[in-house]
Amino acid sequence: MMANRPAIVTKVEVARSIAAAISAGLKIGRVEVDHRAGLVVIVPEGSPDDSGGNPCDRLLKK
C-alpha cells in the first residue's frame, strides 16, 4: 500500500501553464508532464520536437 503524498505537479499548475501558452498565441502540439522532476513541457505545434505520438498521423499530414 502506497502512502498518500502531495503531487509535485498539480492539475492546476498544468492547466495554468496550458492557459498561459494559449493566451500567448501558442498553438500546442504536445504537453509533457514529468512528475518526478516537477516539470511541465509544452511543445509548440509544428516544432521539430513535435513528433506527434503516432507515426501514422505524421504520414497522413503530408
Rank of each mutant, 00 (worst) to 15 (best):
I22T: 09
N54A: 12
A21D: 03
R58H: 10
K62I: 09
R30C: 07
P6H: 11
P6K: 12
K27G: 01
I22C: 01
N4E: 14
E45P: 02
M1E: 15
A37E: 15
K27M: 06
N54F: 08
D50M: 02
S47K: 03
P48K: 13
K27Q: 10
V12Q: 04
I8N: 13
I28M: 06
P55H: 04
E13G: 01
A3Y: 09
G53E: 11
G46K: 06
L39V: 14
R36Q: 08
S51F: 08
P55I: 10
A37N: 12
S23N: 14
R16D: 15
G52W: 02
V41Q: 10
C56Y: 10
R16Q: 15
P48G: 08
G25A: 10
D34R: 11
I28E: 07
I18K: 07
A21G: 05
V9K: 09
A3V: 10
S17L: 02
P48A: 14
I8D: 07
M2T: 04
S17I: 01
R30L: 09
N4Y: 12
L39R: 14
C56W: 11
L60Q: 15
S17Q: 11
A24H: 01
L59P: 02
N54Y: 08
C56E: 13
R5V: 15
L59D: 10
K61H: 07
R16C: 07
R58K: 13
L26T: 05
D50C: 08
L26Y: 01
V31D: 12
K62P: 06
I18P: 00
H35Q: 14
S17G: 11
P48W: 13
K11N: 09
V40K: 01
L59T: 08
V12I: 08
S23G: 06
A37I: 08
S47M: 04
R30M: 14
A24T: 01
V33I: 12
E45T: 00
R58F: 07
V31M: 07
A20M: 07
N54E: 13
S17Y: 03
V33T: 09
